[in-house]
Design a protein around this nucleic acid. Structure first.
Lengths: 239, 239
DNA sequence: CGTTAACTTGAGTATGTTCAAGAAGAGTGG
DNA sequence: CCACTCTTCTTGAACATACTCAAGTTAACG
């Protein structure tokens, strides 16, 4: 297996996948919008009429359950394109972690543009594919990693999302509870594990919401469990 | 949150999403293929040149790690359409759980057909969306459920995949290890938890590879943690 | 500066893992 | 068809990791 984050791959940014001309035409469909910290942009299960590009701030994609538990599925950073669903209904809820500004695009106009411009249609498919790749990574994290690995996964992930290459301070915009609900752990375990990583020298911490990964290579080694050899396609297949 | 499986929704079947005419044209692109039990159809990271419809048998989508651990991402049943990737590389490996027969379609021809027929293009998008919905469900299962719930999730899931409505015997084509690697548990925990579910009367067991869910409503109650009220779209949004 | 929410740490507990042995099935060859 | 073998499954006992409950500390915000 390979984790996308460890490849430093580009996130789900639509506009960066489009050429200048397409990006301009696409941007012309959008209208500015804003969301206060803690407010909900859309809820799981509701009809989806608009898609969005995040301009500033941070969002969180989540699912809530009746018993009060929550699963955080992703953190959304500026440039990310969210909210488009083939099914017509949102699969998750989107909540602002910080005050946010967005650009809002009507789905109907996006669809119309995709029908006319193959390049736009393809870019939208790439975004969906990237989201799926992230989801598969998260399944592997939740299915096979211990608390220490999960936390390092989050830190490396955040580092890439913030487009930081050097070992500089990573800003952690979410609460311990948010991290816990993302990683399938409890708040207390997050807190304890951060302390442990600090004691082990893997990370340095200037505040509860800022860490530095001291040895990135070692950190990625902890996470990157990928099988290295990639063999030829389509073998073992009889016809 | 809501689990797709608990809604009894249709799986990722391409041909059933197409009209008769499109389905016929699409099927004309395919060539029969076969795969022996245990054989690999394609591997994660390899270029993806073909997509497939499973005709008979069962496949497993998985990721392997160097340390020998494995994450099973999905079980594939007849009718399922797999192997298409926008990125051009397979995100997961596909392995036969039982002897299988498939229909193989060249990606290039699928793409060409999708460009000409909007209905085919849309059906492909629906398949991708369904796969994403499944992945999100699995994240919630791995992030928030205990062993008992995870196992019931798998059983209800398998029941739906086998299109069984009545409380009849569910065939379990995979080993305990496969189940464990799918649910993020160990083989021993699977075994113990099955015994426990049997003692509790939730399931009946005729063999190690066949179970019956005694009270489906109760089983789904155990899993369906969804927030029931669906509110209006796009609120709390300032412009 | 005071109040509240968020974070950290501790002690005890629980769920699931590990290691190990034995039982049940599936497949093979006589 | 039965005996043999090998794999898979089940169960037990000890252990580990993460959880729960609880107290105390730090940080954020008015």
């Amino acid at each position: 297996m390979s984790l996308e984050i460890s490849r430093g791959s580009a996130p789900s940014r639509l506009l960066s996948l489009l050429g200048d001309e397409d990006a301009g035409a696409f941007a012309a469909l959008g209208k500015p919008a804003a969301l206060n910290k803690g407010a909900t942009l859309y809820e799981e299960g509701t009809p989806c009429n608009y898609a969005y590009t995040l301009e500033s701030g941070v969002l969180m994609l989540e699912r809530l359950s009746m018993d009060g538990r929550r699963q955080v599925l992703a953190f959304v950073y500026p440039g990310d394109f969210i909210g488009i669903e083939v099914s017509g209904r949102h699969l998750v809820s989107a909540v602002a972690l910080k005050d946010a500004t967005l650009t809002r695009y009507p789905i109907s106009e996006i669809d119309a543009m995709a029908r006319n411009k193959a390049s736009v249609d393809h870019a939208l498919k790439q975004v969906t594919n990237r989201i799926l790749a992230y989801a598969l990574d998260q399944i592997c994290v939740l299915g096979r990693m211990d608390a220490r690995q999960r936390l390092m996964f989050l830190f490396v992930h955040l580092m890439h999302r913030q487009m930081l290459e050097e070992p500089v301070d990573i800003d952690i915009p979410m609460t311990r509870q948010d991290m816990a609900d993302f990683l399938g752990l409890t708040m207390e375990t997050i807190s304890r594990t951060v302390s442990r990583l600090k004691n082990e020298g893997l990370i340095s911490q200037t505040s509860a919401h800022s860490v530095t990964i001291n040895d990135l290579a070692h950190a990625e080694e902890l996470l990157d469990l990928s099988v290295t050899d990639r063999r030829a396609d389509e073998f073992a297949l009889e016809e």
